[in-house]
Design a protein around this nucleic acid. Structure first.
Lengths: 241, 241
DNA sequence: CGACCGTTTGACGCAACTCAACTTCGGTGG
DNA sequence: CCACCGAAGTTGAGTTGCGTCAAACGGTCG
């Protein structure tokens, strides 16, 4: 028993400081299982613009997002594009139980990933009921997000859409915000063009709404990518509530 | 062993003709488990317009859709509404692992449901790894659908949106269509107003695009709810491909 | 410095919305 | 049976929010 305890505390070097072990899917694994998975693991750093998974190609690996932002998108044959999700640490990339993911995953900012083979993850799933559960939970969270965004895409004005996006980023960039703290500053992980693809708008309209939000005092901008929100409640209102 | 075999073939009366046992979540259960679940089960028939689950109220039960169409929707405070999903037999209604569903489920047509308590389902999940898996699979399918629809909402024209909707219904109304069979006739489960809420449009625009599709020969209409598609490939094209 | 890329701003056009009239249909009661 | 009603759908005329096209404005890099 003592030996087992020691063994259990022997978390793989690679995983020791990893956020995915606390808030992500790897939290479901015991030290032994973690060790096994980590043997098939490769840490990579990708530059903005790198395609991690492409829409119609077979998936051969999964990846945990360790830092940065990954955008999931779909394109039509004529080039029209829609971003259908954003992944932050410690989300998992990949579509379980399917050969093709149906979406393209591309780094929006430079990002760190922890990649492992499809087979390795599937082995973990088989051995750990908790792991299965974690994956299920993540799928449900993504579904909630997708539906929330459908409301935004279908029914909100351009102004509300941009405000909704800023709110999304404000929340994601500081998940542990205390409630009283009513202010936020952050870097936008997306260009205007990517924001447009997320919101179902054009670059120009996004830009105009950003100016409108600035002029009405809801946001302040240092550079084109740095946003300060002096009053999150006002932003909330601007986003349609 | 023989006794067990006999026992296993003893599928509860209620479940015998149920589609959910073949293509739905109940397929994951053994006869014993099915029997246990069926003890906490209530078959109900609801009229069009009945609210099955409401957005911000605690969930106390789940339900399998046996027939009919259930719409899932979200509303904004000012009344703007977006349908975020449609459920057909043998889908499962309910959001596992959460107190509130976040969406309202309402019968679009008169529907038959097989309802069971949250507790009963959760017991099944605990006992059956397959059941967990089924739920996970359904969540992933719903996620794929939601993302497909985000592309429609964000990037397609009104004409393409309506065509996409008709295609969705055509496929759902006859899941076992053979490939060569290039024609379809079906009843629309939604009113124009509901279609508008699904597509992020107004009633008038939906109506105009329906006439446009009719005039261009992509569809024919017997009544306002009966649609015939003489050539599914043309409808496919009209929906943006 | 000049070339380039991402962004902003302006002028204009059009797809979808709004408002309103009319038609169709199913139901209800005289 | 028909007259009447309300709800759902269609159609038209006018408006507008967002898209398109075009020009100008920074940053960054060779």
């Amino acid at each position: 028993m003592t030996r087992k305890d020691i063994h259990n505390s022997d978390v793989p070097e690679l995983c020791r400081a990893c956020e995915a072990r606390h808030r992500g899917v790897c939290g479901a694994l015991s030290a032994d299982e973690l060790l096994e998975l980590s043997r098939h693991t490769k840490r990579v750093e990708v530059a903005a613009g790198t395609v991690v998974i492409s829409e119609e190609e077979p998936i051969e690996s999964y990846a945990n997002v360790l830092s940065g932002v990954i955008k999931l998108s779909k394109v039509m044959e004529d080039g029209r594009q829609q971003i259908v999700g954003l992944k932050f640490a410690p989300d998992l990339l990949g579509r379980p139980f399917r050969e093709v993911s149906g979406v393209t995953a591309e780094a929006a900012t430079s990002s760190k990933l922890c990649m492992f083979s499809k087979a390795a993850l599937e082995r973990s799933v088989k051995n750990s009921h908790d792991m299965t559960n974690q994956l299920h939970q993540q799928a449900l969270r993504e579904l909630d997000d997708a539906r929330e965004w459908m409301l935004t895409l279908g029914r909100k004005t351009a102004y509300e859409k941009v405000a909704s996006f800023l709110r999304l980023i404000a929340v994601a960039s500081d998940p542990e915000r205390e409630d009283g703290h009513n202010e936020a500053t952050f870097q936008l992980p997306l260009t205007r063009s990517e924001m447009a693809d997320f919101l179902g708008l054009t670059i120009e309209t996004v830009s105009r709404q950003m100016t409108a939000l600035r002029k009405s005092g809801v946001i302040e901008m240092e550079t084109t990518q740095t946003v300060r929100v002096p009053d999150l409640a006002r932003l909330h209102l601007a986003s349609g509530f």
